[in-house]
Simulated scan of single mutants.
Amino acid sequence: MRARLHQIVVDSRDPGTLVRFWAALLGGEPVDRGRGWSHVEPPGFARLAFQPVPGDKAGKNRLHLDIAVEDVAAAAAGAVRLGAAPAGAPVTDDQGSFQTMYDPEGNEFCFVGP
């Protein structure tokens, strides 16, 4: 049996707010669903769904999104304007550059560039 990725689900205190951050960052229209769920289907990307959970995030993510951008610094600055925060300084190595970020609920993601 071959499976396919349907969606990526993120636990969230406030799915409606978090989906709007990710929709502004990646594109697509935020959709609020029943029982507190929300989702967005960014162009060219898997659906991101946000399910309501009690309490704040605890600990480091075991999985994070790497988002390809042309300009890591500009992408990070734009995400900060939307409510994200940088996690440390940008890193450049033999594979390129990246900036680790936190979304408004503290979930890690990275902008990666050439």
Rank of each mutant, 00 (worst) to 15 (best):
A46N: 02
H64Q: 12
D56K: 10
V10L: 15
M1A: 14
V112E: 12
A79Y: 05
L25C: 06
G28W: 09
V9L: 14
L25T: 05
A87Q: 13
A49H: 03
R20F: 06
V91S: 00
G28K: 02
P86E: 09
A3T: 13
L18H: 03
Q99A: 03
S38P: 05
R33D: 10
C110G: 00
I67C: 06
W22P: 04
A77E: 15
L26F: 07
A74Y: 10
L82W: 12
L25H: 04
Q95A: 13
I67V: 15
D103Y: 09
A76E: 11
A75S: 12
F98D: 06
G83K: 04
F109V: 00
A87I: 07
K60E: 15
L48Q: 07
L26M: 11
Y102R: 15
R4H: 13
V40C: 06
Q95W: 14
A46M: 05
M101N: 04
V31E: 15
L82Q: 09
I8T: 10
D93E: 12
G36V: 05
P54H: 12
A74I: 02
K60Q: 12
F50E: 05
A24T: 04
R20D: 07
P52W: 07
K57N: 05
G27M: 03
V112P: 00
E41R: 15
P15F: 00
F111H: 01
M1C: 08
G27C: 09
A84T: 02
P52R: 15
G88L: 02
K57C: 04
Y102N: 14
G34N: 10
W37P: 01
M101A: 07
M101G: 03
A76V: 02
Q7E: 13
I67T: 05
G78M: 06
E41I: 11
R81W: 01
P42S: 05
G78K: 10
T17H: 12
L82S: 11
Q99W: 07
P90L: 00
D94M: 11
G28P: 06
L26E: 08
D93I: 02
D14V: 08
D103F: 09
V9P: 00
G113E: 03
G28A: 09
H64Y: 12
G36I: 07
D32R: 10
D93N: 15
A75F: 10
E41A: 14
Q95T: 14
F45C: 11
V72G: 00
V31T: 13
L48D: 06
G16P: 02
